[in-house]
């Protein structure tokens, strides 16, 4: 079980969190023209890298904040965690 450092609450066990997917994903702005392929990319296509991955987690059984986790998917090492509006360290 991973130990994840919530930027608001500190280190907690994985059971308190839920995974939220690729953190680099950007939702197209509302009300703008979006091509089929762009929309497809946004809704369906995800990378599944072996190695470093910036991802979203939700502290669902804690402060209920979404935040970013920079993690190695091969070793499960967590390189850093940061608030949504922070740059990754």
């Amino acid at each position: 079980m991973l130990e994840i450092k919530c930027p608001y609450c500190g280190k907690r066990s994985q059971i308190e969190f839920s995974y939220g997917g690729d953190a680099k994903l950007e939702r197209p702005k509302l009300g703008t023209e979006v091509s089929d392929s762009e929309w497809n990319e946004f809704v369906y296509y995800r990378n599944n890298p072996r190695g470093e991955h910036l991802e979203l987690w939700h502290h669902i059984s804690g402060c209920r904040q979404w935040f970013k986790v920079f993690r190695n998917t091969a070793t499960h090492e967590i390189l850093s965690t940061s608030k949504i509006d922070e740059k990754i360290k």
Partner: peptide, 14 residues
């Protein structure tokens, strides 16, 4: 639904 709203508020439309 709560997680959904929190996602949009915190991540997409802060």
């Amino acid at each position: 639904v709560l997680s959904h709203l929190e996602y949009y508020l915190q991540v997409v439309w802060p």
